[in-house]
């Protein structure tokens, strides 16, 4: 049974006279990893934020779990909000709360889970993302960039979501850390059967995680499909993006890995 989790129908975004999205439609299926790529200012992050309900498109509709984010009662939207987790680019941990309280916050907000279970769940989530319990009492400002991302991921997973939004998951991490972070996301996705929507600039992240890629350019989606299909497209942006030096190297690494 294949159902789409997110539907974007004829979406337009305008900032003043500047059109960012012109009649964009997109469907994201359950258990796939869709990457949004595009040049700076092509509206990838805006589209992602519209899917999270943080921004409202000028026209058109975004449906998540079959619920339209534009025309619905706040109660229903609040309920589906608990079914997705978001990893923000900078982590967006609450700087006034400890690591432990950051992850416990969404659970406490439910109001029905007792502290004992919260504690075990928080420690379990920390363990899942590879953070030792000794760091739980630290403040976010005492953590390194890689740890902030891991804690933010643990917080995003606190409510056991089905859908995970990632905004530049590996931005600001060194290659070693970003590789282990990508591996972590991939493991968790398999284990928890997550659907993932992400925005990324990083070719290695794109190649190792995505099952489908959507390319945003010239105010619309110019190509969508598996990486192999998208690469074949002759669109100017795609040839630049994938056939440049960096792109070639990454793709070569991919094909070598496939041969193995």
């Amino acid at each position: 049974m294949k159902r789409c989790l997110i539907e974007v129908n004829n979406l337009w975004t305008k900032f003043g006279d500047h059109v960012v999205h012109r009649d964009v439609s997109l469907a994201i299926d359950r258990a796939e990893v869709l990457s949004l790529v595009g040049g700076s200012g092509s509206g990838k992050t805006t589209l992602l934020r519209q899917m999270m309900g943080l921004e409202t498109p000028s026209a058109g509709e975004v449906k998540v779990f079959g619920v339209s984010l534009q025309h619905n009662d706040p109660e229903e939207i609040r309920r589906i909000r608990n079914r997705w987790g978001v990893l923000f680019q900078q982590g967006a941990l609450f700087s006034a709360l400890t690591v432990y309280d950051n992850i416990a916050l969404p659970l406490r907000e439910l109001g029905t889970v007792d502290e004992g279970l919260i504690r075990e769940l928080v420690l379990l989530k920390l363990e899942m993302v590879g953070i030792e319990a000794a760091h739980a009492a630290k403040m976010p400002s005492d953590l390194s960039g890689g740890m902030v991302k891991r804690v933010a991921l643990a917080r995003a997973l606190a409510l056991e979501p089905e859908l995970l939004f990632l905004d530049e998951p590996t931005a600001g991490l060194d290659p070693d850390r970003s590789e282990s972070f990508v591996q972590l996301i991939e493991d968790l996705r398999r284990e928890l059967e997550l659907t993932v929507v992400m925005v990324t600039h990083d070719l290695d992240t794109l190649i190792s995680l995505s099952s489908r890629v959507a390319v945003l350019c010239d105010q619309r989606i110019v190509a969508i499909g598996s990486l192999a299909e998208v690469v074949k497209s002759s669109h100017r942006f795609i040839t630049n993006f994938f056939q440049g030096e960096r792109g070639k190297r990454a793709l070569q690494a991919l094909s070598e890995a496939l041969v193995k």
Binding site: R119, L123, L124, E127, M128, A133, A136, A137, E191
Partner: peptide, 15 residues
């Protein structure tokens, strides 16, 4: 099965 695997490990108490 996998969900129960990690649960048995003792967790250090929070300071």
């Amino acid at each position: 099965e996998g969900l129960f695997v990690g649960l048995g490990a003792p967790r250090p108490a929070m300071p």
